[in-house]
Amino acid sequence: MKTAPSERHTLSILVDNEAGVLARIVGLFSARGYNIDSLTVADVSGDHAVSRITVVTSGPPAVIEQIMAQLDRLVPVHRVLDLTALGPHVEREMALVKVAGVGDKRVEALRLADIFRARPVDTTTQSFVFEISGSTEKVNQFVELMREVGLVEVARTGVVAIARGKEAV
C-alpha cells in the first residue's frame, strides 16, 4: 500500500481573541499527533476581537483536509484557509542571529550579513546580533552559513503569511 507524500501547508485561522483559544488549537494538533512546524498569533481587528493564527504543518493532502475540517468545527474559529492551496501568498519569517568572532571571522560575518540583507541590531567588540527576514529557506541558509563563522544562538519568530491580491481572505 502506497502512502501519499507529505506536503508543507500554511494555514490561516481567524479566531475570537479570547483566553484559551490557542490552547484549544494546539490541543487539537497534539491530540491527533499532527506536528506544528511554525505557529504565530496576532490581533488583526480594530476592536481586538479577532486574531489570526498562522500554522505551518506537513502531511498528506487527506490529513491536511482533516486538520482543516476539525479546526473549522471549533466554536471560536471564524474561518480556516489553506494559503498553500489557495495559491499566491506571501510568507516571511524573522530571526535574531547572534554571532561571535574577531578578525577574519568578524569580517566574514559582516560580508555574509550584507549579502543576505541582514542588519546588525547589536554590536560589541566580540559579537554581533543580526536581524534577518525573508522566506524560511533564506533564514535557514543564513543560519547555516553563520555556523561556519561563530554562531552562538538563534531566536526565530515563526512564519507569518497573507494571501496576495486586493481581496481579504
Rank of each mutant, 00 (worst) to 15 (best):
L22V: 15
V99P: 01
S45G: 01
G134F: 02
A163F: 03
R119V: 05
R117Q: 13
V169E: 07
V154L: 00
V143R: 03
L112R: 15
I13H: 10
I25G: 00
V77S: 05
R73I: 11
R147L: 00
I25H: 01
S45K: 00
G103C: 12
D114V: 11
D122H: 15
F128M: 11
F128T: 09
E148L: 04
V149Y: 02
Q141W: 10
L74G: 02
K2G: 12
G103P: 08
V15N: 10
R92Q: 05
Q70P: 02
P88S: 13
V139D: 03
E93W: 05
V41C: 06
V99L: 01
T123Y: 03
I25N: 00
V129P: 04
A49E: 08
A163W: 01
F116R: 06
V55P: 00
F116K: 11
D43V: 13
S133G: 12
S135G: 06
K138R: 15
R73E: 13
D47A: 06
L110P: 00
G59C: 03
G134R: 00
P88D: 14
A69P: 02
G20S: 02
A155C: 06
V160Q: 01
A62E: 13
P76L: 02
I13M: 13
V160E: 00
V99N: 00
D16L: 04
E65Q: 15
R73W: 04
G165Y: 12
R79L: 07
T54E: 12
R8E: 15
R156L: 07
P88N: 13
Q126E: 14
L71P: 06
D104K: 15
V154W: 00
V129H: 06
I67P: 09
V99E: 01
V129D: 09
D47P: 04
T10A: 10
T124Y: 13
T136K: 02
V50K: 05
H78D: 10
S58N: 14
G46T: 11
V169D: 08
K138A: 08
A23Q: 09
V152R: 14
